[in-house]
């Protein structure tokens, strides 16, 4: 332990670390996530950035699975239908649970769940269906429990899923983004991003007119060619940005989309290495 290390803890500068690296003495500091104590020393167990809050030392891993927090918006995929619950893959260390009691069912928001609902759970969500939900609570073993009790949550249609490292999705004011090109984005905090055709606000069902047919429908709407192109363009842009480890926010995505419209060539050309480098250079110049 040299003077530089102690310095950083006082000033709060950036410090990177990796497994097995000694951070500080355990007598003066407390160990947090990503660290362990051995021989009166706090030692990092993951590679990433060291953070200090008062006397608590944590290491935030630069690449890891999603660590859920209550209130987070996530996109997930149904993996299993079980009695009174669905299992959802949410890019976390375990599959999440969506209880039958935490979804909106047809016939009124405040309706009681009946036995007949249990028997027809597959008519709401089937294996492989994608959905957007909110983290509601945790079970004893750390499994997250989701809910879709809002009109903005529910089954996903008319689009495409992109996966990125979860650390690239920052907490934003809204994770529902509408790009001017007729594309809606849902940035799940678990690194799953849903890119879909824009739905006009007027076509969204109001609180009273909860339309189960539409919410749990498995059929895609008609999507015209230009919308399909726009969706693929946004998807490719996200993939390129994620490959360069650029954090995704609404402004970055807007800038990237505007830049890509000025470029010649096809949507697929965005995935070429030189196009990606040019895009990142432009984004960095603006940011």
């Amino acid at each position: 332990m040299d003077a530089d290390d102690e310095d950083f803890l006082e000033t709060g500068g950036l410090k990177m670390t990796w497994p097995g690296e000694s951070l500080t003495s355990a007598q003066a500091y407390m160990r947090g996530h990503g660290t362990y104590v051995d021989n009166e020393e706090v030692i990092a167990s993951v590679s990433g950035l060291v953070e200090r809050v008062n006397k608590l030392i944590t290491v935030r891993a630069v690449r890891t699975r999603y660590n859920p927090e209550v209130g987070d918006l996530v996109v997930g995929r149904i993996t299993e239908v079980q009695p009174r619950r669905w299992k959802v893959d949410g890019n976390s260390r375990q599959d999440a649970v969506l209880m039958l009691s935490s979804v909106n069912l047809p016939g009124g928001v405040q309706r009681r769940k009946l036995e007949s609902d249990e028997l027809q759970m597959r008519t709401f969500f089937e294996e492989g269906d994608l959905l957007v939900a909110e983290v509601q609570a945790f079970f004893g073993d750390g499994t997250m429990s989701l809910h879709t009790r809002s009109l903005s949550y529910g089954k996903l249609r008319n689009g495409q899923l992109v996966t990125v490292p979860p650390i690239l999705i920052r907490r934003l004011k809204s994770h529902f983004i509408t790009l001017p090109c007729g594309v809606d984005l849902i940035l799940g905090l678990n690194g799953y991003i849903w890119v879909s055709k824009h739905v006009k606000d007027s076509e969204r069902e109001g609180e009273d007119g909860f339309d189960a047919e539409a919410v749990y429908s498995n059929k895609n709407d008609e999507i015209d060619d230009s919308t399909r192109m726009a969706i693929s363009r946004v998807t490719n842009l996200i993939n390129v940005l994620a490959a360069h480890y650029i954090p995704l926010t609404d402004t970055v995505l807007l800038d990237a989309y505007e830049w890509s419209l000025e470029q010649e060539g096809d949507v697929k050309d965005l995935l070429q290495e030189d196009a990606g480098d040019a895009l990142v250079a432009t984004i960095l110049a603006k940011g």
Partner: peptide
């Protein structure tokens, strides 16, 4: 590798 990733993440916003 860590420096590269952190550098890219710090560069924006």
């Amino acid at each position: 590798r860590t420096e590269q990733l952190v550098g890219a993440m710090q560069s924006i916003g």
